[in-house]
Structures are given as C-alpha cells and as structure tokens.
Nucleic acid binder design. Sequence first.
DNA 1: ATATGGATGCAA
DNA 2: TGCATCCATATT
Length: 176
Amino acid sequence: VARDLLGATLAVTESDGSITSGLIVETEAYRGTDDPASHAGRGRTPRSEIMFGPPGLAYIYLIYGVHHCLNVVTEPDGTPGAVLIRALEPLTNLPVMTTRRNQKSKNPTKLCSGPGNLTKSLNLTLSSNAASLTTSHISIYAASQQYDHVSTPRIGITKAVNRNWRFALPNNLFTS
DNA sequence: ATATGGATGCAA
DNA sequence: TGCATCCATATT
C-alpha cells in the first residue's frame, strides 16, 4: 500500500471551502506486531489502538513534542499497520502553505518535504486524528497510473533498520 | 552540533 | 508519580 500511495493525491478541505492538496511522493510502511519500529510493535496501547482498526483512517501523532506526523491506516481490521506520509509535491493553495511554514522563498520543493513539514503546511494536528479519509475533511485520491519507485531503509528509526520500507518517486525534488 | 518541548508507555 | 524515549526541524 505504501507503494500504491505514491502518486496519489492528498487533499484537505479548509474551513473556507478551499482545497489544500499535494501529490504523495514519499511514504514509509509500518506493519505488524513484529515491527519494532512501529507504534503497534508492542501490542495494543491507547495510542496504537487505531492502527489495529479498519483501514482508511488517519493516524496523526505528535513527535518530539513539536511536530505532527500523518499516517494512513492500511491493514484489515485486527491487523496493525499504517503508512507514514513523508513528503508531498504541493498542488493547490501553495500561498497558504508558504504562510503556515513561515517561508520567505516561494520555492515549493521544501513546503511539504518531511512528515512534520507537510502536516504544518496542511494544518493537520491531533484534532484530526482518527478522521476517515473517505468522509472527512482529509481525503486521498488514488493515483491514476502506476509509478516507478525506489525503496530504502526507513528514516529516523533505530530498530529494524534492515527493512527497506521507505518508498519514494525516483529523482523527485520534493522528497525529504 | 544543538535547542526545541508534549504525549506516551513503562517502571516504581 | 517520575522519567526515558520518540517515524523531526530550524537555527547556530
């Protein structure tokens, strides 16, 4: 699923009705109770519970007390799994993103480059945790084509570094 | 290289 | 209750 999400469109409907969106260019998979790098790797906890739930929900958590990370719950009900969205190529509402990121340059390549950066650009916080990606203000539209990809170890983790579960569009300027 | 700073989960 | 840890980023 992490591979399939490459090239999909992530869109957030703002309170004024406008759409802030981007193309998913970088993802990471976290799957199973035997994945020590996953929040679900030590079984069900209040936080990881959502990863065990039905697919199609947003899992948003606070990291380092500073940044939010957006994940898509993927596996069938009962099996834990989620895909971390790590980078987007901005599509709409770029000025809004630039303002939220306090960017002076209008260079779009860094607007959504990194999991904490894209949630800031899209204004996603814990209040959107567990939102349905099919019926809420957050939506994902499947890619219209199959994209080529590269895979590498996941970033920022210390366990299970040998699994190449990070996926990105090759030679993409908007990855982190 | 370093400051940032809240939620989480586990031990006590 | 206390504390180490954490899927990161901006700034020095």
